[in-house]
């Protein structure tokens, strides 16, 4: 079996390389899954934690903010996963003292920067989840708006009769999205955490 170096893995994550992602999954997932299951989680929780940890690493890489000095990719991944799961446990009001430490982790990685990034990732993930539940029409329309495409162009692309209608429709779509986000209990928990 091929063994990839940390550098190859990071480059692979950055370019969404399917082979590298599969490698990471096969190599590390079962350990993460074991940790989560040993600490009051289930298979779905484990896959969520794994997924979000990779996204957090990707965000770090994009910001050019990931250098391994004393750590390795595996160590970093496990530490991020552990941190994300601890946060979930806190949200679920589950006692932290009873934690089964089956993953090797590095406490020094838990800096303010990581905390902020995980929080941001959580919020953005929630928004993106609800965005995906909108009709394709709404999704496309909102993306065009945010990409600063002109109203005239948007009306043309979407087949609307006027620019005004495009704008009104966009407000409607956004209103639905915001309503759904606000109704989400996860969002309420995030707000509670912030205050």
């Amino acid at each position: 079996m091929i063994v990839y170096s940390d550098e190859q893995i990071l480059k692979g994550v950055l370019r969404h390389d399917n082979l590298i992602l599969q490698y990471i999954y096969k190599q590390f997932y079962y350990k993460i899954s074991y940790f989560v299951k040993k600490n009051q989680g289930n298979e779905d929780d484990a896959s969520d934690v794994f997924q979000e940890a990779i996204i957090v690493i990707y965000r770090k890489l994009k910001e050019n903010d990931l250098v391994f000095q004393k750590s390795s990719f595996a160590g970093y991944l496990f530490s991020v996963c552990r941190f994300i799961w601890l946060k979930q446990l806190e949200k679920r009001r589950i006692e932290r003292k009873k934690l089964n430490e089956t993953l090797p982790f590095q406490e020094n990685l838990y800096d303010e920067n990581l905390v902020e990034l995980v929080d941001k990732n959580e919020r953005y993930g929630l928004y993106q989840k609800h965005f995906a539940t909108l009709s394709t029409d709404c999704q496309k329309l909102m993306q065009l708006f945010f990409e600063k495409v002109s109203l005239r162009e948007i009306a043309k692309i979407m087949g609307y009769k006027s620019e005004k209608y495009a704008k009104t429709r966009k407000y409607k779509c956004k209103e639905i999205l915001i309503k759904r986000i606000k109704q989400d209990t996860e969002f309420k928990k995030i707000l509670e955490d912030d205050t």
């Binding site: 992602l21 990707y58 919020r123 928004y127 993106q128 993306q143």
Partner: peptide, 14 residues
């Protein structure tokens, strides 16, 4: 968040 197309696609890929 909506502009983060690459993250949405990475999440789907994983």
């Amino acid at each position: 968040a909506i502009k983060e197309k690459e993250i949405i696609s990475l999440r789907n890929q994983i």
